[in-house]
Design a protein around this nucleic acid. Structure first.
Length: 297
DNA sequence: CCCCAGGCTTTTC
DNA sequence: GAAAAGCATGGG
């Protein structure tokens, strides 16, 4: 086990919980993320490279270290919103990760009308119940990690058993199994959906053909799992900060599909359209933490 | 018992 | 078509 990378203030998305020394596995790299303080972490692994790519290069891509997060905002953003710009300062080192598409798809299907704590619990239970075990030793301790389950594994799952992982929600369990079947049987080609030339609206409507996936979750899958940093998911928190920070009257309406699309357009006037979702995510966590007092990472 | 939580689906106008 | 109501579940 060797140290491969150390960095500061990254966001650990849904499948991880560094606070409890929860260890995670990046696709195809058995590795451990160890938080050494609130703002620093270290990645350890038993491998040096993956598919000919050195681990540091892989990590750089995975954590999108090539992205300058300040460029995710419009050019005159700091001039128009100087106080907000100051509030955002500690959040520019926050990262969106290029996560596995299938894992992201299923994880965000768990994120509907439910608290963040329960969302993470569901994903953890899915890993523990259906994911392959991997044992590693770290600092003298043996640790058992769990891969995220494959599409085939979830496609064959018993709905009643799987619903224990979805907050006892049968409908969500059914949707997850159906989505896993679609991927396993090739009716949904996630690799093809990674094509950056695919228009966002088209990508969204393809994802929305699956039960349990609407605009918001489709945009989350695009943003976190398909590398589409232009996708701008709008949830209850985004709606709140658009109303509060940017005085959007649209954001005060109920979040219908029409409102969603209107807010999507509004956001692109405030942010760099190519990185709108990246900026949105920074705003999202700043809002939750600084304004609502929620701790999410 | 109320409302909220990183919404989606069905019904109704 | 689009707005309104219904839905599902745990936690504060």
């Amino acid at each position: 086990m060797q140290t491969l990378f150390s960095g500061q203030t990254f966001l650990w998305e849904i499948h991880g919980n560094v606070k409890q020394f929860y260890s995670a596995i990046i696709k195809s790299i058995p590795c451990i993320i160890n938080e050494i303080s609130e703002n620093e972490f270290i990645i350890h692994s038993t491998k040096n490279s993956v598919d000919g790519v050195t681990i540091p290069d892989f990590i750089s891509r995975y954590f999108t270290l090539d992205i300058d997060t300040k460029l995710a905002f419009s050019e005159d953003f700091s001039r128009l919103y100087p106080e907000l710009w100051q509030l955002l300062a500690p959040y520019f080192s926050l990262r969106i990760m290029r996560q596995d598409p299938f894992e992201t798809m299923i994880s965000f299907m768990c994120a509907q009308g439910i608290g963040m704590h329960l969302i993470r619990k569901q994903v953890t239970m899915l890993r523990q119940t259906y994911g392959e075990n991997v044992s590693v030793s770290f600092l003298g301790n043996k640790i058992v990690l769990h891969h995220f389950p494959s599409p085939e594994k979830l496609a064959a799952a018993d709905p009643a058993l799987l619903s224990r992982c979805t907050n006892n929600n049968r409908i969500r369990a059914r949707n997850i199994i159906l989505a896993a079947r679609s991927v396993a049987e090739g009716r949904v080609d996630l690799d093809a959906l990674c094509n950056p030339a695919l228009p966002l609206s088209e990508l969204r409507s393809i994802l929305c053909r699956n039960g349990g996936i609407g605009y918001k979750i489709a945009d989350c899958i695009a943003l976190f799992g398909l590398g589409r940093f232009d996708a701008f998911p709008i949830d209850t928190h985004v709606k709140q900060y658009l109303a509060e920070w940017f005085n959007s009257t649209t954001a005060r309406r109920s979040l219908s599909q029409a409102t969603y699309l209107a807010l999507d357009r509004e956001a692109r006037t405030l942010l760099n359209p190519d990185l709108a979702g990246y900026a949105g995510h920074i705003l999202f966590h700043c809002w939750r933490r600084e304004v609502k007092g929620l701790r999410t990472f």
